[in-house]
């Protein structure tokens, strides 16, 4: 158990009759960067809050480095937590802000200044040391908030949507910072809906939907669960196209187009290249306006959508 940074056993959290997290069994190895994926309301934030000791599970257990978490203070010593929506004390200067959290963690006065200076250096805010927090840009505030979570040198970092609201440049900077932290030996758990960002940096992933963990493991492990697919963009007559596609050999399932891409039909397909070619030919013969036809890659995003769609379909059945 000591090799695991985090282990949850049948972790369950209910709000009245609503089950936000349902019997979650999560294992995260020490030193990994774990990407927590899931649509809104999947239970990611609830899970992170329970891991941080901020929310009491309705049942189940959380172990952090083998230690059962029953009190917030136990988790606080091990975990640095950065919530998805965070505020800052506008009327404090940048160094005062970190100094405050250093005091809250009981860091001795002799070490406090070097801790604050070191963190400002790490998040590249040394030149803003005496600026008021309210005068920082969103990206700088995000980095400052990350620094606050590191002030007591925790073994585990829980970052809830750390990249939300950041411009591309700030995201790149944040990614670099996370890599640095990984090199420092921290175990990092971050939730995000920007899947390609996670793909670049995370070593392991967990996919959640409706409170349940659908899959977890490395990208390679998850890819083994993915089914090949085709994406077909049809400009008109979508229903006829879907009927026709569904009747072709090699087609396992035709998924309803997503709201944001109403002309894009995703097809689960386990046929060979000849069958794919025949499918395209049949669509053309039916005079359907095909704008795009290609095999889908094994991206995290597709895997994520596939698992979530499967789960929703299972629940509906």
């Amino acid at each position: 158990m000591s090799e695991l940074a985090i282990q949850t056993v049948d972790l369950l959290r209910r709000y009245g009759k609503y089950t936000a997290v349902n019997k979650l069994n999560l294992t995260i190895a020490t030193g990994s960067i774990f990407g927590f994926l899931g649509p809104n309301g999947a239970g990611k934030t609830t899970t992170l809050r329970m891991l941080a000791g901020l929310l009491e599970p309705s049942s189940g257990q959380v172990f952090l480095h083998g230690q059962l978490i029953q009190k917030t203070s136990t988790a606080a010593a091990i975990v640095g937590y950065m919530p998805d929506f965070f505020g800052v004390y506008d009327d404090l200067r940048v160094w005062e802000y970190l100094d405050f959290y250093a005091r809250c963690h009981g860091i001795e006065p002799a070490k406090r200044k070097s801790t604050v200076d070191g963190l400002l250096d790490l998040v590249d805010l040394s030149d803003k040391r005496n600026a008021f927090v309210q005068h920082l840009s969103r990206g700088m505030q995000q980095r400052l908030c990350l620094a606050h979570a590191l002030v007591h040198d925790p073994k585990i970092l829980l970052l809830d949507e750390p990249a939300s609201g950041l411009d591309p440049q700030a995201r790149v900077e944040l990614r670099e910072l996370l890599r640095t932290l990984r090199d420092m030996g921290k175990t990092i758990i971050l939730s995000s809906h920007i899947l390609n960002e996670l793909e670049d940096i995370c070593t392991n992933f967990g996919i959640m939907a409706r409170g349940q963990l659908l899959a977890q493991g490395s990208l390679e492990t998850l890819r083994q669960r993915s089914r090949p697919a085709l994406q077909i963009k049809v400009l008109d007559d979508l229903e006829r196209a879907m009927r026709l596609i569904g009747a072709q050999s090699g087609v396992l399932r035709v998924l309803e187009p997503a709201e944001e891409t109403p002309n894009l039909i995703e097809v689960e397909f386990d046929g060979n290249e000849q069958q794919a070619s025949q499918l395209l030919l049949n669509l053309a013969r039916a005079e359907l306006p095909i704008a795009d036809f290609h095999r889908e890659d094994d991206s995290l995003e597709r895997l994520f959508l596939q698992l979530v769609n499967d789960h929703v379909t299972e629940e509906q059945l």
Partner: peptide
């Protein structure tokens, strides 16, 4: 209200 509460209680401060 200013979303600092969780960050505060997530510290070691009793």
């Amino acid at each position: 209200e200013r979303l600092t509460y969780e960050m505060l209680i997530a510290t070691n401060l009793p």
